[in-house]
Computed example of a mutant assay.
Amino acid sequence: MTTTTRQKPGRTRSGETGSVRTLERGLLVLLALKELRRAPLSQIARQVGLSVSTTYRLLETLRQQGFVEWEEQTGLFSVGLRAYQVGLAFAERSNLIGAAQPEMDALVADLNETVNLAVLYDTEAVYVHQVEGRQLVRMFAHLGDSAPLHCSGVGKVLLAWRPEQDVRQKVGDGPYPAYTPHSITTLPALLGELGRVREQGYSLDNEERELGVRCVAVPVRDGTGQVVASLSVSAPTSRFSAQQIPEMAARMTRAAAQVSGRLGWEERTVR
């Protein structure tokens, strides 16, 4: 007669625990490379807070599987093709990007400025799609880059229609980092700004994150009326004056309404 010991839910054997920890570290290395773009071993190790030897073993395993590339001449590591393929699978699965593409193309044709699409991920706004403008000097973010919620156009839109309790959970009680003298740094100021965003239907990053740059962002809704993304356009203040803000916001709002319609949203569903 044999007896078995049932493992408690949420508990793992020691070997499994070690494997999970290795996986977590490997993912941290990939995320570090996403931020660093191309970097030597020593810099990656510092970024993730691991020893050089441990970081090298993780990188080598990822390289063998195609998630990391290594340039022999420079000794630099970068994100590999396999990681791109995984990200592409997300893009293909998400009908959000497909719904937004025609309107983003039309906006760039009309405005000749770069247009971005961002979603809320944890405590940041993450850029998931982009159509670049044709200006010699243009504003753009790398896909996968994140923006702070408290002082970016997309971040404020993604927060504005959430309950105050959720906002506090996402950004904390402050004070928040000041990227420029115009950045919002306190919770009361942020809550007041989010109220204005809801009232006017769009958000403005008026040199809050970077001096000399303005951004208008608008909400994209799904079939339930929930804000699931933010559509934005950024430009140097030399090409985007304060007087142009209402016209730019109106054009962006029309585009966002088209995207939302493709996702099943009807204006009457929003309260």
Rank of each mutant, 00 (worst) to 15 (best):
Q101W: 14
A250E: 10
C151E: 11
G264C: 11
V197T: 08
I245W: 00
G223Y: 11
E16R: 06
I184G: 04
V216Y: 04
L149S: 01
P236E: 06
V119F: 11
V128C: 05
V228Q: 01
L36V: 02
Q226K: 14
Q7E: 14
S241F: 09
T224F: 10
G261V: 06
K156Y: 03
M248T: 14
L50A: 13
G87A: 12
L36I: 01
R162L: 05
Q200T: 10
P40C: 00
D222Q: 05
Q258F: 02
T55W: 06
G261K: 10
R162S: 04
S260N: 05
E266G: 08
G212R: 09
S78V: 03
L41I: 05
P188D: 00
F77C: 02
V20Y: 14
A189S: 08
W161P: 00
T123H: 09
R262P: 02
C215A: 11
S146N: 09
V48W: 14
Q64H: 13
T54C: 06
D222G: 07
A32K: 09
E24W: 05
R254H: 12
R63C: 05
L31A: 15
G174H: 02
A45H: 10
Y127V: 14
E72C: 01
G66S: 00
N206W: 13
L211E: 11
T4Y: 14
I97Q: 08
M248S: 07
